[in-house]
Design a protein around this nucleic acid. Sequence first.
DNA 1: GCCGGCCTATGTCATCCGACATAGCGACGG
DNA 2: CCGTCGCTATGTCGGATGACATAGGCCGGC
Lengths: 242, 242
Amino acid sequence: MYVRCAACPLRVRPAFVQKSDEEVALIEAWKSDHLRLPAGAEFIRPEQTDAELFTLFSGWAFRYKELIDGRRQILNFALPGDLIGLQSSMFGKSLYGAVALTDIELCLLPRRKLGNLFERYPELGYEVTWLGARSESLVDENLLSAGRRGAAERIAALVAGLYKRAETLGLVEDGALELPLTQQHIADALGLSLVHTNKTLARLRAQKLFSISEGRLVVHNLRGVSRFAQHFEDDLAPRPMI
Amino acid sequence: MYVRCAACPLRVRPAFVQKSDEEVALIEAWKSDHLRLPAGAEFIRPEQTDAELFTLFSGWAFRYKELIDGRRQILNFALPGDLIGLQSSMFGKSLYGAVALTDIELCLLPRRKLGNLFERYPELGYEVTWLGARSESLVDENLLSAGRRGAAERIAALVAGLYKRAETLGLVEDGALELPLTQQHIADALGLSLVHTNKTLARLRAQKLFSISEGRLVVHNLRGVSRFAQHFEDDLAPRPMI
DNA sequence: GCCGGCCTATGTCATCCGACATAGCGACGG
DNA sequence: CCGTCGCTATGTCGGATGACATAGGCCGGC
């Protein structure tokens, strides 16, 4: 069923800037569809020329790039409230792909209205830019990991970052959250091989800072994880949601 | 001396979207200063709360993050016409630093006017967003390198990317351009050690696809470099310049 | 004119990480 | 029931990369 922005259960969460009824109505006018896609669906394809702009309403997704010989790099993970497809919408050709990790729901924000939006609702334009800048900051951090952290530190930094983001969204209960990533996803996000990821995860599990198993992440000592990974950035919140 | 936008020698280059006199006047009204900084100057500091927004007018610069133990990752290089500091301006605290590689000139675009700008000149707001998205696409590509390319491929991809960008700016002459990077910068940008970067550069030089020496990059075979690096993205041009 | 700092270069050795092989387990379908 | 597929796990081995040491060139300062 269609979810109207006025009745959106996501945007009222404390992670997000609370908007006036009028502002919500503007967003609702922009939103043209509410899509449901199964896990694994690719909703933006590399090279696609007519990719749209989306807000992830529920579930997890990721953006990725790959080399022609098949090596794949996950650029960042998206959680509910995240905007996906801004680059693709502005450049007229997507330089990356985007895939659902779980069954997801997407709010479709037609890109042909994007220019118009800036004209008519500058406040919304500003927030789009803000969300684009946040997306870049996530990639910045991942580049720091891939370039300068060792394997165990990379995994710990990923855990710390995702945990903090999930926490602002209220997805954490008793230090645990659903983590719909396979070890292959973790490897692809961190620039590691699958086998090495597996072995490093086993070693980390023995350290008892956190553990990943059966699709759940349990963090026993967030401070310890953050210190080990040298990951000290809090998630940016409250933030706009469109 | 101050450079007025109406007399800006940079924005008339073919890399950039050509603007009407009226549009240029808007930008000129935004620009509040024209700064000159020596090579090595850090014009955005990590954690800085009042970092401004800049357009790089001349010279080279880079953005970086670092871990507390000193390991440094260069996130991307900036060439003339690039916008630097959008994240910092929007978040109220910078998550990265920015440093001049050469003597540089910067156009200062006061961030306190940024919100106002979106309201009054939505077209400019749109272009700011476009430039932010382009900056993210550069980081995306660098993350692909750090995560999934081998050392020699990384260097080749860096060369291909910088060469293509320099070419659209008219900085290439006879297949060569000034490259103000030390091997330490290359290492920090690619997630390699200095020594390994040096040895890999020597091996690449022997292959004669390109060579870096004495502050110059000479590309003998761009196709070959691109193929070896699996780097096939052209620079986005013409693009807005603010 | 000498010293020190920065950059590049090169050798040796240690380590991290990747490649390949194998195996167990659960889900799913014929 | 059985075969396949996706995911996790573990061992062995080799290769890519990092760490440490040393050296030479260049340049600027005193």
